[in-house]
Amino acid sequence: MSPSADPQANGPERNGRYFPGRGPAYWVCAGFACVALGAAGILLGYLVAESLPALRSQGWPFLLGKDWFVGENYGALPMIYGSVMATALALALALPFALGGAVFVAEFLPARARLIVKSIMELLAGVPGIVYGLLGMSFLAPWIKDAFGLIDGNSLLAAGALLGIMVLPTVMTLSEDALRSVPAEYRENALSLGLTQTEVVFSVAVPQALPGIAGAVFLGVGRAMGETIAVLLVIGGIDRIPSPWYDVFSPGQSIPSKLGREAAESLGYGLHWNALMGLGLVLLLMTMAVAFAGNLFLRRARP
């Protein structure tokens, strides 16, 4: 038997290239990887299959339609809009504080104070959504109502602000980790060249931590898009795109909050169920797009 015919042999040679031998570790890990990939594939297939009747009966208006009346028509646009808007608001409100805070904690705070801030942030990052939702209901929404003179504080703004507060600890602590993981010798070399501390932070530490910071931000976006209960409690629950479209003081609806409200009552059959599954599919595709954009950005950010 020639050595190249035996895949178990160490270093089989094919056309002058050598391949490492494949031992038990290879096959065990490959098996687990296949199970994980298969599960994700089955999930996606199930979502597609279940939502197909709704997509077929509605056609494009499923994505573009503005009305959702159970038993008549199912238009997903208000929910897509609500999800995008709440997430965008969350980012706009949270990023300045999260990134500024991460830079401050990582670069300027003495070691002991840093550990205290970090442990508080990590604690907050683990608080369940329902707790944030209750606080949002009892404090944030009424506060927004009074501050802006609204009839009802439950609005896209309340949802966005609450999501911003929710993702802030995660984004901040992960960005801070990324900054801390830039080796000190780079900072020392830059300092020894006569750069100021600010210049060192922004032309050495931040650029090198950028892939990690971007990862933290995309994780935050993913969490904001998928958050259900906290949003459900403060977004207002009305399937409508406000006019003008940027009126964030109006109530709205996000995809998860819609699913959270209606999934139990329509469970299992009928076009309503299929339409809800279609919403789930849209949400899945949106989060996949975010992850994909994140990867693309990271590949470009790397030197």
């Binding site: 010798e185 780079y186 020392e188 070399n189 020894s192 060249l193 090198q208 030197p303």
Partner: peptide
């Protein structure tokens, strides 16, 4: 100017 024991270049 200072030169350190371990060479260190920036990722540029």
């Amino acid at each position: 100017g200072m030169v350190f024991q371990k060479p260190c270049v920036f990722p540029k």
